[in-house]
């Protein structure tokens, strides 16, 4: 499967492809709010599992599952690694000493750098947030055409000029990638070095200037074409896909649910600072147990 096929939503189940872009974006955004609101590890795990179940329901292909698994594992590893080093809670048990506190300047600067056992677990739990968001984000991307999401943004009164810029950027991404390849080839051919002339990394610092110069020339040609046809200042066609009432209902319900959860969490945090209201006692208990 090519990279292009990977980012196309053609192999997903029809039900999720048919969903309106607005529904997908709302669910994605509300889900992100939920993940940063919740602290309870079990609830976080439930959210993460939910995103994986959605992938199952959407019929994500094996190849995409592999890519998803790799990205999730790398993300979780990164979170575990960083928190193992910087974990700042009691109790913490050092497993290794990377920099001793008395190891010269570095020791003084860092106050000692250790790998903490509890930090690894903490990082894994906290990494579930970004893992959940990544999983749902990829689901949305793999089941939607960028035009579908763009239509949703236009339906929310995104400026037609910005929409045009977005379309231009998306349209020219593969062209720019191809041009980058051409520039690298040209640089390799022009290289006067006998050793490592084919190494891409060697030519990276010199790519920017010719690539940007080509961009400018292309922009001049495109601008002429667009202005002469009156595209640029025209209003965008706002006739987008019909937003099914059931999807709207789901979005409203989810919005209310997220609003309740966020309010409950905020009121609980305020209660810890002394803003306690007796009538909300059950909400506090619920928040403490599940959020």
């Amino acid at each position: 499967m090519s990279v292009r096929q990977l980012w196309e939503g053609t192999d997903a189940s029809p039900w999720i492809q048919k969903l309106n872009g607005r529904t997908k974006l709302i669910v994605l955004f509300l889900f992100a709010i939920l993940t940063i609101t919740i602290d309870n590890p079990r609830s976080l795990f439930v959210l993460f599992t939910l995103t994986l179940l959605l992938h199952v329901a959407a019929g994500t292909s094996i190849y995409k599952w592999k890519v998803l698994a790799m990205l999730l594992l790398l993300g979780l590893w990164g979170s575990m690694f960083s928190q193992a080093l910087f974990f700042a809670q009691s109790t913490r048990t050092p497993l290794f000493v990377l920099i001793a506190p008395d190891a010269g300047f570095l020791g003084t600067l860092t106050g000692g750098l250790y790998v903490y056992r509890e930090g690894i677990l903490y990082g894994a739990v906290q990494g579930l947030r970004s893992a959940s968001m990544m999983s749902l984000g990829l689901l949305v991307c793999w089941t939607s055409d960028p035009r579908q999401l763009l239509q949703a943004l236009i339906a929310w009164r995104l400026s037609p000029q910005i929409a045009f810029m977005l379309v231009t950027a998306i349209r020219f991404l593969p062209v720019l990638a191809a041009e980058t390849g051409e520039v690298i080839t040209a640089l390799q051919l022009r290289s006067d070095s006998h050793s490592g002339r084919t190494a891409v990394i060697r030519h990276l610092p010199y790519i920017a200037k010719p690539l940007l110069a080509r961009c400018l020339r292309r922009a001049q040609i495109l601008a002429l074409s667009v202005v002469s046809r009156g595209f640029f200042l025209a209003n965008a066609n706002r006739q987008s896909m019909v937003w099914d009432w059931r999807e709207k209902f789901c979005c409203v319900t989810l919005s209310v649910l997220v609003a309740v959860i966020v309010s409950s969490k905020i009121s609980y945090l305020l209660s810890e600072q002394g803003f306690y209201f007796g009538v909300l006692r059950q909400a506090y208990d619920w928040t403490k147990l599940y959020l």
Partner: peptide, 22 residues
């Protein structure tokens, strides 16, 4: 700002953003 820089400016910005993304 889009009107000020015109179509040429807007397309340049879009292409620069595409390079930044890629």
């Amino acid at each position: 700002c889009i009107y000020r820089v015109g179509a040429k400016g807007a397309i340049t910005v879009a292409l620069f953003a595409a390079i930044a993304f890629g």
